[in-house]
Amino acid sequence: MDGLLAGLALGAAAGVGPGPLLVLVVTVTLRSGVRAGLLTAGVPVLSDALVVVLALTLLRQVPERPLAVLGLVGAVLVVAIGVRTVLDARAATLAAGELVREPAWVTLRRAFLVNIVSPHPWVSWLTVLGPLAISYGRDSLSVGAIFVVAFYVGIVGAKAVLALLVGMGRRRMRDAGYRRALVVAGALLVGAGVAMGVEFGPVALGL
């Protein structure tokens, strides 16, 4: 029960915490609808599989600079997506319920790239989640597995609820409000990317 509650609590907190993927969930839901937002919300289950395996295997053995390089690459990607969102907002419209439809694989690929190159999952699993999972696993492997599963139920569930709320609010928007929302979301993505660059750039570049 401790592993279950801890996983759910940490997952829910991570799901609503600020970060590139959270802003991307909002942006994608505004542009392409709830279905795309829900797909984006579920991406951590796919992208973090490698993170979890490596973190639990190589816990505390990963040097600081490789993580920083990964963070800098992620920063560039996030800024690029944010700038594109702001540029697209100029001609965006909600007329006749119009949505920017795209194949599911495109939505998943974009969110996967944003999350896999973000240092936050790596840092979280190497410093907090990994040690907790190993601690629970010492008592029972099933308890450790329950902790991991509960964490992802929490994080995906929180982001999915956000996508649903944004989707419901979207129906009440006019074109001007929709464009402003897209600009804000794009600006937040740019801000998140810049913050990542400031945080990890000096180490990645050896400054």
Rank of each mutant, 00 (worst) to 15 (best):
G3Q: 14
L5A: 15
G7M: 13
L10W: 14
A14S: 13
A14V: 12
G17M: 09
P20A: 03
L24S: 09
L24A: 11
V25E: 05
V28E: 14
T29Y: 09
L30Q: 10
L30E: 11
R31W: 13
S32G: 15
G37R: 08
L38K: 04
A41H: 07
V43R: 03
V45P: 05
D48C: 04
L50S: 03
L50P: 00
L50I: 08
V51E: 01
V51T: 07
V51K: 01
V53T: 07
L54F: 03
L54N: 01
A55W: 02
L56M: 10
E64L: 14
L67P: 05
G71F: 04
G71M: 03
G74L: 01
G74A: 00
A75M: 02
V76A: 13
V79A: 02
V79E: 01
V79Q: 00
V79S: 00
V83P: 00
L87N: 03
D88I: 08
D88N: 11
A89W: 11
T93G: 12
T93N: 11
G97V: 13
E98R: 15
E102V: 14
P103W: 08
A104D: 11
V106A: 14
T107N: 09
T107E: 08
R109F: 11
L113D: 02
V114S: 01
N115E: 02
W122C: 01
S124V: 04
L126Y: 11
V128F: 12
G130K: 06
L132P: 04
R138V: 06
R138L: 09
S140T: 08
L141C: 04
S142V: 15
V143L: 15
A145C: 04
I146S: 05
V148T: 03
V149I: 10
A150C: 09
Y152Q: 03
G154T: 08
I155Q: 05
A158P: 01
K159I: 08
L165P: 08
L165Q: 11
V166S: 06
G167Y: 12
M168R: 15
R170V: 13
R174D: 14
A176P: 07
Y178V: 09
A181N: 09
A181I: 07
L182V: 10
V183E: 12
V184W: 06
A185D: 05
A185Y: 05
G186M: 07
A187R: 06
L188P: 01
L188A: 12
G191F: 10
A192E: 07
A195Y: 11
G197L: 03
V198C: 00
E199G: 05
E199D: 02
P202V: 02
P202Q: 02
L205Y: 00
L205V: 01
G206P: 01
G206M: 00
L207F: 02
